[in-house]
Every structure is written in structure tokens, then in C-alpha cells.
């Protein structure tokens, strides 16, 4: 199976965010960057499929020079090779503009499967994967927790609301957007980092890809969330309250 994983580099979760003077993006100067978490789960799913069925895992990422560190990390975790679409205007593009870049890079590879996180941790639109499927002319499914290979294609498990799941069979090639938490992520190893050095990392220039940057959605303004505190008393007996608390921690706060 030839699997492409589209990953995005986003500011580290801990990063202190400041709004840029333009009001349209954040100040990137002192930030540390890391792999978008849902993309890390997409990569993990791809690596597990490869370990089970053989094949190749190729990561693709669009962004400036600094994105290379995140690509190396993906290679260290086990991806076989990588494509880096070098562009400095990622924040100016809308989801269609980014998907145009990714589609142009992915198309010549003719993959069996394209995986990506269901959304990014910075803008969180949840659109790029779906638009990418449309551009590639492939069927897609979103919010995927598990992928299983079948004779004719794949069987996927989708997360629905309120603890419900849906299982779908679909043909390949296909595009899937992956939900966090379906697998356990693997840690990076020294051996992986050393092996990654000799793996192929091909850079593609965004300008050469004939990928339109024309935006259909324009970002007007960004702002920091308003700080608000709310206290909620959970009624009932200790046992009932504890059950309600676990529910909330699991499904609302998502810390369990």
C-alpha cells in the first residue's frame, strides 16, 4: 500500500501567542513549532498499516524552511520519504489554496491512500483534507479512528457525536481525515533520527506547481480568546456526581 500523509507544522501548544501587527496572523518570531497532533495520529495510522501490509509511507508538508524539522521528525518515526512544498505564504492561503499545493504534490505519486489530520491545531478549519479529496477526485471520509484493509478497499471506523461510532466500507484510492486518539503515538528514537538522515526529502517549489493561491475565503481578523471561568456543580449522590464528572472529563474536557 502506498500511503501519503499530509502533515502541518503548527506552533507548539505551550507557545505564548501574540497577535501580529496586521491583526490577521500571529507573531511567529520567537515561537517553537511542532507537528499538528491529528496529523501525528494520521502518520501513526499510516505506519501501522505499512507494518501490517507492507508498502510505503510518504509524508508531504507545505510551508517555509522551518517545516523541514517536522518532516525529519516524521521520517524519524518511520516514514520512508518526504516531499516538502516550500512556500512562505501558507498563512495567507485559505484551505483551498493549501489543498491546491498538496494536491499538486500528491497527484504524480498515485497513492492508494491519503491520510491527514481532521483539522489543524492553529486555524482548525477542518477543510483541507476534504477539499484535497475533491481536487484529487477521490472518495473521502472524515473523523476516522481506525482503518482496516479489506479485499476490495478499506473499512473505516468514524467517530460520531456522543460516543457513537460508524463503520464504513469504501474503495481505494481514498482520502481520510484522522481523529486524534485512535492509536497510541510512538515516541521518536535515536535510531530513527539517525536513519532519517539518509532518507529522501525532496523539495518542490510552490511556484513551479501551478497551484492557484486564489482565496475564496478571506481571513479578516484574529483575536485571543476571552478569559472566562465558569463553575458547575454536579448534582446527585457521590457516585452519580463522580460518573457525571468522568463523562465530562472524557467527552467535554477530553483529558481522560
Amino acid at each position: 500500500m502506498k500511503i501519503i500523509v499530509a502533515i502541518k507544522q503548527v506552533p507548539e501548544r505551550d507557545a505564548p501567542i501574540r497577535i501580529a501587527a496586521s491583526g490577521k496572523w500571529i507573531e511567529e518570531a520567537d515561537l517553537q513549532f511542532a507537528m499538528n497532533e491529528p496529523d501525528a495520529y494520521a502518520l501513526e495510522e499510516a505506519l501501522q498499516l505499512k507494518e501490517k501490509h507492507g508498502g510505503e509511507v510518504i509524508v508531504v508538508s507545505a510551508g517555509p524552511e522551518r517545516v523541514a524539522t517536522t518532516i525529519r521528525e516524521a521520517l524519524a518515526k518511520g516514514a520512508d520519504r518526504a516531499l516538502h512544498v516550500v512556500c512562505d505564504d501558507l498563512a495567507d492561503r485559505d484551505a483551498l489554496g493549501v489543498a491546491n499545493l498538496l494536491a499538486a504534490a500528491i497527484r504524480p505519486e498515485n497513492p492508494d491512500l491519503v491520510l491527514t489530520g481532521l483539522q489543524s491545531e492553529d486555524v482548525g478549519l477542518g477543510q483541507t483534507g476534504v477539499i484535497l479529496a475533491e481536487l484529487l477526485g477521490l472518495p473521502h471520509s472524515t473523523l476516522i479512528l481506525q482503518v482496516e484493509k479489506t479485499d476490495g478497499g478499506i473499512k473505516v471506523k468514524r467517530e460520531l457525536e456522543a460516543g457513537w461510532f460508524q463503520t464504513i466500507e469504501m474503495p481505494t484510492p481514498a482520502v481520510l481525515t484522522i481523529q486524534s486518539g485512535g492509536n497510541k503515538l510512538r515516541y521518536a528514537t535515536l535510531m530513527g533520527i539517525k536513519k532519517a538522515r539518509s532518507k529522501e526529502l525532496r523539495t518542490l517549489n510552490a511556484a513551479d506547481l501551478a497551484a492557484s493561491a486564489r482565496a475564496v475565503v478571506t481571513l479578516e481578523q484574529i483575536s485571543l480568546p476571552k478569559k472566562q471561568k465558569s463553575t458547575q456543580i454536579l448534582p446527585g449522590t457521590g457516585k452519580e456526581a463522580a460518573t457525571a464528572l468522568v463523562e465530562k472529563l472524557k467527552f467535554e474536557v477530553r483529558v481522560l
Binding site: E12, R13, D14, A34, K184, L185, R186, Y187, A188, T189, L190, M191, G192
Partner: peptide, 23 residues
Amino acid sequence: AVNTGEWEDEHGAKLFLALERGS
């Protein structure tokens, strides 16, 4: 065992990932 990825442990991986990304 760790530098080659042979050691698989849920809590261990969580600790390593926390320190790969966080502080």
C-alpha cells in the same frame, strides 16, 4: 531498548512525547 524503539510502554511513550514536544 528505547533508542531502537523496542520498548513499548504506554506511560513511557506518554512521558517521552510530553518531553519531545513540551517542557
